[in-house]
Structures are given as C-alpha cells and as structure tokens.
Simulated scan of single mutants.
Amino acid sequence: MSLTLPPKYDAVELAALEDPYPVYRRLRAAGPLCRGGPAQWVVTRYADVAGLVGDDRLGAEFDRDYHRIALGEGPLADFFGRVMLNRDPPAHTVLRRLLGREFTTPAVRRRRERIDAMVAELLAPAVREGRFDAVTDLADKLPIRVLAEFVGLDLADIDEVRPRARTLSQAFATYLAEPERAETVEALVWMRELVAGLFEAERKGPGEDLISRLREVDPATADRRTLIDNVVFLLFAGFATTTDLLSNGCAALAARPDQLAILRADTGVVPRAVEELLRFDAPVQVKSRLVHRPVEIGGRVVKPGRVLVLQLGSANHDETRFARPAELDVTRHPNPHLSFGGGGIHQCLGAALARAEAVSAFTFVARRFTAMEPGGQAVRRHTPNFRSYLSVPLRVTPS
C-alpha cells in the first residue's frame, strides 16, 4: 500500500509569483498540512491557523541552533534570540510591557492629528502634479517618520534608517540565503549602533519618547543590549509591515475604481477598508511556531520539536471562512482576518499604529482624489514571507 504524501510548500517559489493565492487554494484543497523544510509542516486552512496562533502547545522561542541554521553564525542569530517576536513568557511578557505603552490604541489616537498632517505633507505634491508613487512618495516615508517621533529618532537619520530596515527584513524569512547574509548583518550592525547612540546621548531633560523611558529601565528587568535589539526590531517591524500595507492597498484600490468610489462616497467606511486590504494581500504571510506538545491536525499528529508554519495569507483567502475571498470588498464585515497574528500574546504590537496610518492615508486619498489609477507597471518585491512592492506608480485626479 503506497503512502500519499501531502503536497510540498516552497516559500521561495511562491515568493516569485505575482499572485500566489491560486496556489494557496490548491494547497488548501489538497489537505490541512503541506510539507515544508526539514521537520517543518505548513498549515494553510483558516480554522486550523486561527486555532493555532494562540495555542499554548506552540511557542515562538527557538533555540540558538535553529537561528544559526536559518541565518548563519554571528549577529543575526544573536539578534533573533533577543527580540520579543521570538520570546515566550516570562521574557516576552516583560518586553511587551516595557515597549508597548507607546503603541496602545489611546496613545496612537492622541497622535492621529500629527499622522494626518504627515500624510497631507507627503501627498501635497501628488495633489499638485496628478501623480505619485505609492512606495517611494508615501509608504516608504510615512511609517518611518511616525516611528521616529514615537521612538525618539532624529528625523535627519530616517533616510539612512529606511533602506537598512528594509534590508533587515530579509532576515525574517524562514531561511536567509547565503548571498543576502552579509548585507543583512551590515544593516543590523549599523542599526544597533544608531540605537545604542540614542540610549547614550545626553538629554536636556526627561522626554516622552520610547528611548527616554527605556533608558531608565533597571538592568535587572532587561539589560541594555536586549532593549537596543528590541528597539531595532520595532524600527523594522513598524516600518516594513505598514509600508507594505500602504503600497499593497494603493495598488489594490487603483485597480478597482468601484471600491475606491465607495470610500469617496463615505469615508466612514475607510476603517473597514483597511481591514479588508489587510485580509486581501497580507503584508506578513506566515508565522513560524515550535511545537512543545503534540498537536493533531487533520488526523496527523505533529510531534514536539517540529516547526509549524502558519500560512496567514492562505487562511485569509479560505473560502470556508470568507465569501468570495478573491474579491476585494471594502465593506466586508465582519472580517476576522489573521494578518496581525490573529490574537494571542504575540498579536502585533504595532497593529493600532499601522491601522491609524492606513486610515489616515486612505481617507486622504478618498477625499482629495476623484480618481486613482495605475500610472505605469507596478514592480513587486519578491521575498519569502512578505507581500510588498518596489514601485507602484499612480495617476490621480485631484478633487
């Protein structure tokens, strides 16, 4: 009797596709699990992924050998062992409490007028000229400016931070190929030195930014190097994912004028639209978890020590949970997408901030442009685990 193996999931091949969602559909249809890399299973269906993202039988904390295999020897493996994304309680609980105060919904709400002003400033040339690039003119600039004020980063440094944060994002793939490792290490070292300098800089008085507060943390609670690495992580995570939400969203709306017309008719729909854009083309496509206790999925028991790759992008397009998942519907409600992690202790720390920036940007687009359409060929950035663009040229008609 022959054994039928589950289908193979290849993150690199999927990353090369302009549209991976038809492949995800076929993988879901084939079964609840796909084969990934060594000792790795990939979960593609919504019900399974949603049930596992907060399951305490799984953990986010991998041993150092895992990071060395994925990232090589040196600073990257060390960095990934420190950031809260890859820590379990109690370390994760401490770090989230220390870093999370500036990113709560009330804290973000207090900065909404400032975010609106940044959007208006960045898109003022588009209003005058009738064109802009969603990546270079908006998405690459807004999140890092917002983060600079939250963290306490000098605005003069953001043009140097931005490309290095994007380079560092390569390390968040399931596996970092050898050719990319040197430049990624260089980006990490540079960002560590920048953040360390912020901690050491003389301040005239107590500030309200994150660095000012973290400088006073007792080393017994979290040592300085751990704090530095987690601020570096915030600069990457808060930049890259929001950048991709904005550029993916602009591209999707420009290709669907009927959906943009809904927002123009009623900007109160924009928050729902942001949730739908997150579902439709999730910036972060996967989460990896280490199995601590046996987990049964579709009749197969996954043993401790194995890795489960939770395919958020596939789950968000599961036809058993979402009607017409391949269609963008800015009025979709409810919309229980998993793009910010789907709940649990590892829910995205910057979710409220990313949502606020997207609501501000798409509200401006709806109010100030009577039309927005492709102004040239959009260019995808093909990287495992992320959906993003290098360029999204657009033509707009100012109102």
Rank of each mutant, 00 (worst) to 15 (best):
M1G: 15
K8I: 13
K8D: 13
E13V: 09
A16C: 02
L17Q: 08
P20C: 04
Y24V: 02
R25I: 02
L27V: 04
A29T: 06
C34G: 03
V43Q: 05
R45M: 00
R45A: 00
L52E: 03
G54T: 08
E61F: 07
D63K: 05
D63N: 04
H67G: 01
G72Y: 02
D78R: 01
F79L: 03
G81C: 10
L85E: 07
R87Y: 02
P89N: 06
P90K: 01
A91L: 11
H92C: 01
T93M: 00
T105Q: 08
T105S: 09
R109K: 13
M118I: 14
A124P: 04
V127T: 11
F132S: 05
L142S: 03
P143Q: 05
P143K: 02
V146G: 04
D154E: 15
E160T: 15
V161R: 08
R162F: 12
R164K: 14
R164Y: 10
F172R: 06
Y175F: 13
L176S: 05
E183L: 11
V185M: 01
V185W: 00
E186G: 07
A187R: 02
R192S: 08
E193D: 14
E193M: 06
G197V: 12
F199T: 12
R213N: 05
D218G: 07
P219A: 10
T221A: 12
R224N: 02
R225P: 01
L235K: 09
F239E: 10
L246M: 04
L246C: 05
A252Q: 12
D266L: 11
G268Y: 11
P271K: 01
A273L: 08
L278I: 00
F280V: 04
P283S: 03
V284C: 08
S288N: 14
L290G: 09
R293P: 03
I297Y: 00
G298Y: 03
R300I: 15
V301R: 13
V309Q: 10
L310M: 00
N316M: 06
R324E: 15
E327K: 04
N335Q: 02
S339M: 07
G342K: 00
G343S: 01
I345D: 11
I345M: 12
H346F: 07
H346M: 01
L349F: 09
L349S: 08
G350P: 08
A361L: 11
T363C: 14
A366G: 08
Q377L: 14
R380Q: 10
P384Y: 09
N385D: 13
Y389S: 02
P393F: 07
P398D: 11
